[in-house]
Write a protein that binds this DNA or RNA. Structure first.
Lengths: 212, 212
DNA sequence: AAAAAAAATAGGAAAAATCCTGTTTTTGCA
DNA sequence: TGCAAAAACAGGATTTTTCCTATTTTTTTT
């Protein structure tokens, strides 16, 4: 039995190189490659283009891996998605798994592990490396993500705080009193244990609440 | 004639996938792959391990592409280095080329272009895509990099400004008067057209003067 | 509808940051 | 060695930020 694989990655060289690698494996062959989620979904309109496994990059322009995986999970649940990324931060990995990915491979895995992952995801329905498994376990116990700790309006404020606007100007664009903005800031400082706005900006960028 | 290629990249999957791809080309074959610059230099101690071309990733732990390329340029100038990266910011590309790379490929190039690059770098000694060529031309004309615009001591101050320290505290660790620190800040604000410290932090992170 | 919880708002004070206009000290160099 | 430029430093005013405590308004729950 030969299983079909589709590769979705905006880096074409990586796509093609990965394709060569997968084609070397027995039992697996590449059906085609795509540059982003939109292209993939377009392809899926023809049933012959629906593969057994999708190797999905997380960071892509136009339609990223998380959105794309969610869509596949809802509409083509028989397709196994393996996430593939250089991102190894907890938040990204968790988002991807919650979206329905059956495994998460870091881009520094070895050839053998890729083959293993493809085989297991077909046979068992999932594949997780030790690294990812550990992150999963950790995420259950200790700290929560900024998104759950902070409120919607606070997250919005943080994005504005990562600009040159004064708090008064932020209050204007958010249509709130400057004193309310101060309230947001104080509550955030408290929750995140920060001393000042500079600390907040660094925190926001580290945790991808704001992308510079 | 068969030319030898070495791949240096900390992402093992990419290395191996790239290896498969290069081995598909006529006239080229992969000698071995490395995970970082230190490994490569260790390998080079044996003359049989010295290839015709090195495909070098820019971002690597331990010893990055820039340092490694400099070392090769000084000690093994007959080896052609082709940089390979997802980074497409001017500063990185220029640094890599100044270090002696004979070409700079973005990771979203196509298979055909990689082959073209390998062939040309052997034949002509260099290969540049239109994108990179444009960046080179642009860099000659207009704006200069932050590193040349700002002074050594100012760059050091910027790193401290990207923390929760007050200016007084920064003055202490830099062993200067708070008023001197203010002088630095004012001169930087002027040169970079910034309004406040938040703007400076964002600028520093965007231009990689500070890595969060 | 009343009670409780959450969100928004205020006053006021102290600290820090910003922005002027200068002076002193150090350094490079002819 | 002396002069000019650069670097370091200062006083003082204004604005912004930070940090208290407390009140009003809105929303949710019972």
């Amino acid at each position: 039995m030969n299983y079909s694989v589709v590769i979705v990655d905006d880096h074409q060289l990586l796509s093609q190189a990965l394709g060569s690698l997968v084609n070397e494996f027995e039992n697996f062959s590449v059906l085609y490659t795509c540059r982003n989620g939109t292209e993939l979904i377009e392809k899926f309109k023809a049933p012959k283009n629906i593969p057994d496994v999708v190797l999905m990059d997380v960071n892509m322009p136009i339609m990223n891996g998380i959105e794309t995986t969610q869509h596949l999970h809802q509409n083509f649940s028989q397709v196994h998605v393996l996430a593939l990324s250089i991102e190894e931060d907890e938040a990204t990995i968790l988002k991807m798994l919650r979206s329905g990915a059956k495994g998460y491979l870091l881009k520094d895995v070895r050839k053998g592990e890729l083959k293993q992952a493809l085989t297991e995801v077909i046979q068992k329905g999932y594949y997780h490396t030790n690294t990812v498994a550990k992150i999963l376990v950790d995420s259950l116990s200790e700290k929560q993500s900024p998104e759950t700790l902070l409120k919607e309006r606070e997250l919005e404020f943080i994005k504005h705080a990562c600009t040159e606007m004064t708090y008064k100007e932020i209050a204007d664009v958010m249509c709130l009193s400057p004193k309310t903005i101060e309230g947001y800031r104080n509550s955030i400082f408290e929750k995140l244990n920060l001393r000042n706005r500079t600390g907040l900006v660094i925190y926001a960028i580290k945790h991808k609440l704001f992308i510079p």
